[in-house]
Amino acid sequence: MGELLAELRAGLAIARKHVVTMTRYRVAMISMIFIPLYQGVIPAFLFGAAFAVGGRSLGLASSIGTDNLAGFIFLGGVVSGMIATAFWGMAMSLRNEQDAGTLEPSWLTPSTHETFVIGRAIGGSVLFLLTQIALFAIGMLFFGLRFDIGILRAIPAVLLALLSMVGVAYVLAALVLLLKEANFFIDATNYLFSIASGTAFPVTLLPGVFQPVALALPTTYAMDLLRHDAIGTRTLFDPVVEYVVLIALTAIAYPLGRWVFARADHVMRVRGTVAQY
């Protein structure tokens, strides 16, 4: 029990350090909000609005069942932000510590190595939440963003997806700690993961070969349920079925991730690459 409490404190210390370090890089803080705005939200909104007829997004309505363009885009930003948190905040930041040389002293402490992923998941989620609040505020002020109260119903789906993304982050952390050049790998897979989850457009528009990939991702269902509850889009399947699949995928992703991470940790200790690269 005392051990578990100590481990929890270690996790919170990691989370705190994650957030504090981020706030010490001012420009990085600003770009956390600016990058999703300029790379996704604003151009997507203006691009989408260019198809509007008489102020209504008729095309979008026939694609997804609602003409709430801002809602569609900003909610896509929620899930892609969550995915980016897992890829960059939880996984890649461990690799950055490996490169910087601070992973080794961390690995020398009695805290379990899993705690380093969990701590980042907590810290990353705090930053994710703050970013989303800022983005929603901007959306409501400048882009006429509005939701149904039903958005609250989607909270379990979002939390499940977050949990499953921690599982995915374990796998990613394992890979980036072993790969030589991890940056492009994370950048590219993060983007594809996000697109295949339907954050930018409905997954039904994906070329046929990518559809099974989309349906295997927990975030696809979270995205679908979130938009359905918040802005009334059509869902891919019955919402109950989607919840069941989401729970099942989370139940697989989490333990699988832990196992892969433990293997990678072992390989690093055999090869002696905790401090290398």
Partner: peptide
């Protein structure tokens, strides 16, 4: 593909 979604196919 976003354009396809926005233009309703």
């Amino acid at each position: 593909l976003m354009g396809q979604a926005y233009s309703g196919g």
